[in-house]
Design a protein around this nucleic acid. Structure first.
Lengths: 260, 260
DNA sequence: GTTATTGGTTTCAAATAATGAAACAAGTTC
DNA sequence: GAACTTGTTTCATTATTTGAAACCAATAAC
């Protein structure tokens, strides 16, 4: 699972470590990172020291474990506001949420689907726990919707980054089988998740396109099979498509204010 | 406004650039960063190239501007979940939110107050736009609550990082005047924001303490002077204190699950 | 109580990667 | 078309990163 390209100097290595720590999904000891990392003891040690210094890692001196630092949260705040569709799409999502099912907004990030925003049916508040979550693209509605509209070059690269892990009996297992469906999605305009990522969860997704036909992201309406079946989910198709197109148009129009 | 310590190698410089880009609060041109940064053209150029490569910056090739990259959002997701009080505090905040005023959860990060989570009175959903926001600590309720319980050494360092910018007529202008109030806060148990950061906004805040008396963060109940006055806000004092203490206890008890 | 073992930290010469002055492109503006 | 402004590449010099090995501290084994 080699994520980043090997040669990007010292900062590349440092960031690789962040990914590694993130990958554990829990605070980790130095030695655990050492096992994963290809670097020798001393090198890794100093890098992690630097990262801790810089607030990118946090060190709990009582338990001797590292976790990701809060500086990331501070930076992500800005990233989210500026570099994602979230701020533009927010009002449209609010509107779409009135269908009464969960809404997702996602963008592509390194072959994976990165959830940028969400509207939930339940009233429970959620914050960063929701934004920032990642999922594979070959078995999610938003993922396939985006893949289907990628340029051949980008698609090829994205596919190479897929693991094609099988999550459910419905998951695509090969690039070929996926490609076939992508063709159909391109023709149809919407993508379905037919319990491909998680049994019991289905969704209908539409790509968000800029005028140059560049795909910016995707939105989906997701539900559980207990509530609705695919047939019933399809009824939201018009609203979904018009919302997606509205967001695309808004993104197009969005020019950051002339200087400051 | 020199944020990070000078000598932390290449990664330090790289991260400094991220902060710089974040500081603009909007997409920036290369030359704008160049002006701010002390580095020569070529150096900065390559660093930004690397960061872009790594997904820490995003480059819009049409408008020739950089913004913070989505990789940060992905990483921050994990950081937020693990390295902050947010996940532990969430249920307690939900409960406290029933007082009908806004609730904030904050931690200290580099002398500033970093908002980690929030409950709003209005039903409007908010995500990363809320978590990740920063504010000065010398003029906010949560900030002062935390400062008051910092060890002398940490307090001294935190104070050195304060700009003591005057936001309103009520803002503390000197360390001395602030220190005096901190003493009182320590005795009293809660801190007030008396329209020190923004006119019309007041809050009552309590520190979240671990058993070793280490301060982990703070929570506050904030409102506008249109709704309540300081006197009325004080009525929430018992609930605020007991919630803070509950969160502290929960954080104490929280041991990440034995391996995975 | 001594001896391994494991986990973490420091040293220092060698190797590599970062540096930055300057030349070079590619637009813009005058 | 000349003078800017802005962004990109080159290349010898320099400084930082590197990593084997030594070291230290704490725990486990004997």
């Amino acid at each position: 699972m080699d994520t980043t390209s090997p040669r990007d100097g010292t900062v590349g290595k440092a960031l690789e470590i962040l990914d590694c720590v993130a990958g554990f999904g829990r605070p980790v000891r130095y030695s655990e990172v050492l096992e994963q990392s290809a670097h020798p003891k001393a090198t890794l040690y100093r890098l992690m020291q630097t990262l801790t210094n810089q607030g990118m890692l946090a060190y709990d001196s009582e338990r001797h474990v590292y976790s990701l630092g809060l500086r990331l949260v501070r930076l992500a705040h800005t990233a989210w506001r500026e570099s994602s569709l979230a701020s533009i799409a927010a009002p449209f999502l609010d509107e779409l949420a009135r269908v009464g099912e969960s809404i997702h907004l996602a963008q592509m990030d390194g072959g994976q689907v990165l959830f940028i925003d969400k509207r939930k049916t339940s009233a429970r508040y959620e914050t960063l726990a929701e934004a920032g979550r990642v999922a594979p693209s070959h078995c999610t509605g938003v993922g396939k919707a985006i893949l289907a509209h990628l340029s051949p070059a980008r698609l090829e690269r994205a596919l190479r980054q897929q693991s094609f892990m099988t999550y459910t009996p419905n998951t695509h297992e090969t690039a070929e089988s996926l490609m076939e469906e992508l063709e159909q999605i391109r023709a149809d305009g919407v993508a379905f998740d037919r319990e491909e990522h998680e049994l019991g969860i289905i969704s209908i997704a539409a790509p968000i396109l800029a005028s140059n036909n560049h795909v910016l992201g995707a939105i989906s309406i997701a539900t559980s099979t207990n509530r609705l079946n695919l047939q019933e989910l399809t009824q939201f198709r018009p609203e979904l498509l018009s919302t997606a197109s509205d967001i695309g148009a808004a993104a197009e129009a969005w020019q950051f204010p002339k200087t400051n």
